[in-house]
Design a protein around this nucleic acid. Structure first.
Lengths: 102, 102
DNA sequence: GATTAATATGCCTTGACACGTATATTGCTA
DNA sequence: TAGCAATATACGTGTCAAGGCATATTAATC
C-alpha cells in the first residue's frame, strides 16, 4: 500500500491527528475513535508498515508515536505543485534541480 | 470523494504530474497513459470535481490545466506534522493560532 | 501455571471504485 | 444537415480494502 493510500483513509488520518496531541496506547485510540479494537489495530499496522508511526512496548500496552520523517515524502510530492500555486519559481527550480541530480 | 482519495489513485497522480509539464487535452493524456479514453475522462472528472484541475474548451477539445489552490489544502493538513519533523515550533504555533481563530 | 489485560491476527461479508466496451454528446466542417 | 473528431456517460464486471466477530498472542499478576 503506497503512501497516498495510507493517508487516504479518514480513520487513519484521525489516528495521526490524535497522535499529534501526544502518544497513545491502542486502547486510548479505541476510546477516541468509533472503531472496534481490531480495526484500530489493523489501521495501526498499516501506519506502522507505511512508516508513519512507531510502537514502543510498555508492559502489555504499546505506545504509538508519530514518525515524522515519513510525512516529508508527502511534502516532496507536494513541492512542485506548491511552487505553481504560490507562484514561487524558486521552489519549482529546486524541484527541477533535484530531478537533474537523478 | 474527499481530497485524499482523489490523489490516492496512481493514474490520477500521473495526470497531475503530466499537467505540471504543461496543459493537455484529453487525447494527449490518453497517449501518455496506459488507459482507455473513457477511463482518463473519468479520472479527469474526479480531479475537476475535486478542484485539482480545470478545463477550457478549445474547439472540440478540452484543455486541462492544474488548479493549484486546491493543493494548498494538503499543505494545511501537513503543516502540524511538518512542524514535528522539522522540529520547528514556529510552524506548530501558527497551526495552533489558526485553530484559535476558528 | 492459571487468570486477566492488552493487542494482534484470521475469516468472512460488504461496498466502493477502477476498468473496458459500447454508446451518447458536443462541436467543427463540408 | 451529414459526417467526422473529441470527449463524456452508461453499464456490467472484478478486485480490494475496511469493517466486525471470534480467536490467538503477549505480558503481567496472583
Amino acid at each position: 500500500m503506497d503512501l497516498f493510500e495510507v493517508i487516504a483513509e479518514p480513520n487513519r488520518r484521525a489516528i495521526l491527528s490524535a497522535l499529534l496531541d501526544g502518544n497513545r496506547s491502542v486502547g486510548e485510540l479505541v476510546d477516541e475513535l468509533p472503531l472496534s479494537q481490531p480495526t484500530v489495530s489493523k489501521h495501526l499496522k498499516v501506519l506502522r508498515t507505511g512508516g508513519f508511526v512507531a510502537a514502543e512496548p510498555v508492559a502489555q500496552r504499546r505506545m504509538y508515536r508519530l514518525q515524522p520523517e515519513q510525512f516529508a515524502e508527502f511534502a516532496r510530492w507536494l513541492e512542485p505543485y506548491r511552487a505553481t500555486w504560490a507562484g514561487r519559481l524558486d521552489a519549482l527550480e529546486s524541484h527541477l534541480d533535484d530531478m537533474e541530480d537523478t
